[in-house]
Each structure stands twice: as structure tokens, then as C-alpha cells.
């Protein structure tokens, strides 16, 4: 009897320790996010004060959001730019990497492995070192200072990882499933669309999330390649907001911008995390 009580007490202690550790780590991760959200709801004057306590003392206010909305061409212009750039990057990255990954995984062609290594090796080139050539190329193409140009740059940067991811995802699908579809009379495109796509969906979601996060948060290329203020994306706007007007920084506006920027990232990740985790572990176990 005493032994049973001892073992259940030990189990309870182990549970408390396990969950306690999880809660502490969770709080550490959540703290900066909560901080930003709370500061964004302080009135502008209060937001400029020393940061403690983090929550609004004089009541919740959306003044910081109003200030941000009035900034430059208006927050919706910049949000629209960012959404357009991110959505286009996601769509283009997914489409190109889907076909490239399928090709690298399933087809035999000369120099296949060399080409794959070449594509993957481009991630070793520091992005900053090719900014000037990229700027010159986009200018030559008439795409400098256009959202289309910046989308092309983002897709190019995103492709090595995306193709690698999609090739792994296709490799994890048994070849016999595809063979069965061919015997059933499906064309190559139909095999890809009806059979393979649903099976590599976790990989597609992973590629989409990475492409979205990278393009939504990217700052340097947007800063260099976009010169017209109306075409700024949110990270560039945030830098402008942070640098302030007449030497003062509106910390409330900055934090409301941060909140606005992280909302879609969080929503996307929470919605798709199930697929995302499966995508990252694809091929790891049978």
C-alpha cells in the first residue's frame, strides 16, 4: 500500500517537473510576443516611458495603430505590398520546386546529380555579396523598384531549399504507387496532380511556410532594390518608423507594426504546423 502511494507520488512529482519545465520554456518564448502586443496597446506617450510594467497603466489604447496607419502612404499600402510579394513568392516557389523536385526525384537525365548539387551549393553564396549584381540585372530588365523584381529575387533565393525539400518529399513516396497509377492509365501530369501532390502535401506546406516567412520578413533586398516609398514592404516601413520623425521614436507605433507583422506568421504556422512537422521529418522514418 505504502509502495503504491510512493510510486504515485513519484509520478505526480515527475509530471509536475515535466509540465513545469514546459511552461517555463513556453513563457520564455511567449514573453517577447506578449510584451510587443501589450506595448502596442499603450497610448503613445506611455509607450515612450521606461518599459516596466509592460502592460498599459492608463488603459488600453489603439492610438499607436492609428499613428502607424497614417504613416507614409498608409499602412494598408505597405501591408498590401508585403502580402502581394509574399503570396507571389509562395506560389512561384511551390510551383517551381514541385516540378523540379519531381524531376530530380523521378526522372533520369544527364548530369542530374551535378545539377542538383549546383543548385544546393548556391545557398553557400552570401546573399549580400550578390546584391549589387542583382540590382544591376533588375535595372537592365526594367524590374528595379518593382514588386515583380523583388518577387523574382525572393523566389531565386528560396528555390535551393525548396527544391531540396520537394525532392526529399517525392523520394519518400514509394515508386510502386506511381507505377500503379501509370498502369491505371494516368499521364505524368495526372500522376503528379492526383497521386503525388496529396502525398507530398507536408513538403509543399513546409516550402510554402518557409517561402512566406522569408519573403514577409526580408529586409535588406527590399531596402536596396525598392526606392519608391509607395512600394515599400512592411520590414522597410518598420525601419522607417523606427528611425522616427524629428529625432523621436514612436515605440508604440513600432510595437504595433511588430504585432501586425507577426500576426500572419503566427496564424499561418498554427494553421499548418501539423503538415509542417510531418514535412520536416519526411523520410526520417519509414
Amino acid at each position: 500500500m505504502a509502495r503504491t502511494r510512493n510510486s504515485s507520488a513519484r509520478r505526480l512529482f515527475a509530471n509536475i517537473r515535466y509540465h513545469g519545465f514546459g511552461i517555463v520554456v513556453g513563457l520564455l518564448f511567449l514573453a517577447p510576443l506578449v510584451w510587443s502586443v501589450l506595448v502596442s496597446f499603450k497610448p503613445s506617450v506611455e509607450a515612450r516611458q521606461p518599459p516596466l510594467p509592460p502592460w498599459p497603466v492608463d488603459g488600453f489604447s489603439v492610438q499607436s495603430y492609428d499613428n502607424l496607419a497614417q504613416y507614409g502612404s498608409g499602412i494598408w499600402t505597405y501591408t498590401g505590398n508585403s502580402l502581394m510579394v509574399s503570396a507571389a513568392t509562395v506560389v512561384a516557389s511551390v510551383i517551381v520546386s514541385l516540378f523540379a523536385g519531381y524531376g530530380f526525384s523521378r526522372f533520369r537525365f544527364p548530369f542530374k546529380n551535378a545539377l542538383f548539387v549546383l543548385i544546393i551549393s548556391t545557398v553557400m553564396i552570401p546573399f549580400q555579396s550578390i546584391l549589387t549584381p542583382l540590382f544591376l540585372i533588375l535595372t537592365k530588365l526594367g524590374l528595379q523598384n518593382t514588386l515583380t523584381g523583388i518577387v523574382l529575387v525572393y523566389v531565386t533565393l528560396q528555390l535551393p531549399f525548396s527544391i531540396f525539400m520537394m525532392r526529399n518529399a517525392f523520394d519518400a513516396v514509394p515508386k510502386e504507387i506511381e507505377d500503379a497509377a501509370r498502369v491505371d492509365g494516368a499521364s505524368v501530369l495526372r500522376v503528379l496532380y492526383r497521386i503525388m501532390l496529396p502525398l507530398v502535401l507536408p513538403g509543399v506546406v513546409t516550402v510554402a511556410i518557409f517561402a512566406f516567412l522569408a519573403s514577409w520578413n526580408e529586409f535588406l533586398a527590399a531596402l536596396i532594390l525598392l526606392t519608391d516609398q509607395n512600394k515599400y514592404t512592411l520590414p522597410v516601413l518598420m525601419a522607417a518608423v523606427r528611425s522616427g520623425q524629428f529625432g523621436t521614436i514612436d515605440w508604440g507605433a513600432v510595437q504595433s507594426g511588430v504585432t501586425l507583422m507577426m500576426a500572419p506568421c503566427l496564424a499561418l504556422f498554427l494553421l499548418l504546423q501539423r503538415y509542417y512537422i510531418r514535412g520536416l521529418t519526411a523520410g526520417a522514418v519509414k
Binding site: P174, E176, I177, D179, A180, V183, I195, P198, L199
Partner: peptide, 12 residues
């Protein structure tokens, strides 16, 4: 028509 070792059913 072919029957495969691993069944090769469409899992979805």
C-alpha cells in the same frame, strides 16, 4: 493489370 509487392494503394 499489375499487383505489386507493397500493394501500392493510393493512401489518400
Amino acid at each position: 493489370a499489375m499487383v505489386f509487392q507493397s500493394y501500392a494503394l493510393y493512401p489518400h
